[in-house]
């Protein structure tokens, strides 16, 4: 069974952390992954940087630009984490935009992910319809779970379609925004979380965007299986380097 599905079966709220590969320094990738696991994180999203990250706010944009300047590429990332499964057992997901994967070759990219022990992918600009008709078979051949996003504006009909195509979890974007744009939740979010919770989807939901501390983590996981933190973690690494990752994680989990 895929590590993601196994993890989702555990009777606890899950904390997933996103970081940008190759940032702040090119060789930090594997160290960050190991430190995150040691700190008690449940799942990791390894951000493959892209020159034009449309769905991201300034924090992740800046980290991506720096990572690319540092020399990060798909090839370099795969090389840095080729032995990662000797050290790390929690689910690992690569999150990146579609064009770099397309240039690497979708089949080759998926094959490489399987060899390394990557469990899933999040590709914000690969729409569910295109995935369903063109790439699903390839992802399944290499036992990769593809994770789709939903937002407060996504229609019920489309959420049901996304649920039917998914086999892991649904990434529930907390508000209509780019990453790191808003912090905290209001009534709109609560209503949206409740609406989704009441839809009885077959896939559990993990909330992302707007989560930065214990309070927002607790709010988000009241309705969902877990929560993802991205911009707040990248900010922490920018300000404090990679040696105090456990402090950051402990503050979230409290």
């Amino acid at each position: 069974m895929n590590r993601i599905n196994q993890k989702l079966k555990e009777d606890k709220k899950l904390l997933s952390i996103y970081f940008t590969a190759g940032y702040p320094n090119i060789d930090d990738t594997a160290i960050i992954i190991q430190n995150l696991e040691k700190s008690g994180v449940d799942m990791i999203e390894i951000g493959l940087p892209f020159s034009d990250p449309l769905a991201d706010g300034p924090t992740i944009q800046a980290s991506s630009t720096q990572a690319l300047k540092n020399g990060m590429t798909s090839e370099v990332l795969f090389d840095q984490i080729k032995d990662i499964r000797q050290f790390v057992s929690i689910p690992l997901i690569i999150m990146g935009y579609f064009n770099p994967m397309l240039q690497y070759g979708i089949e080759a990219f998926c094959k490489k992910c399987q060899e390394i022990g990557i469990d899933g992918l999040i590709i914000p600009d690969l729409p569910v319809d295109v995935y369903h008709s063109e790439y699903k078979a390839t992802f399944e051949k290499y036992e990769l779970i593809n994770v789709f996003l939903i937002t407060p504006q996504t229609s019920d009909e489309r959420i049901h379609f996304i649920d039917s195509v998914s086999d892991g979890f649904i990434y529930m974007v907390s508000s209509a925004s780019t990453t790191g744009a808003k912090v905290g939740f209001g009534n709109t979010q609560t209503e949206y979380f409740e609406r989704i919770a009441n839809m009885n989807l077959k896939n559990p939901q993990i909330v992302g965007f707007g989560i930065s501390n214990n309070e927002t983590f607790t709010q988000a996981t009241k309705y969902a299986k877990g929560a993802i933190i991205g911009s707040a973690f990248v900010k922490h690494v920018t300000q404090n380097g990679i040696d105090t990752i456990d402090t950051f994680v402990n503050n979230i989990k409290n």
């Binding site: 798909s74 064009n99 770099p100 240039q103």
Partner: peptide, 22 residues
């Protein structure tokens, strides 16, 4: 250019071999 994705459409675009837009 080479075929790829820019600003939401599949088209010819100038990019590196790694798929970063130049």
């Amino acid at each position: 250019g080479k075929e790829g994705i820019i600003h939401g459409c599949k088209t010819l675009l100038m990019q590196t071999t790694d798929g970063q837009i130049t």
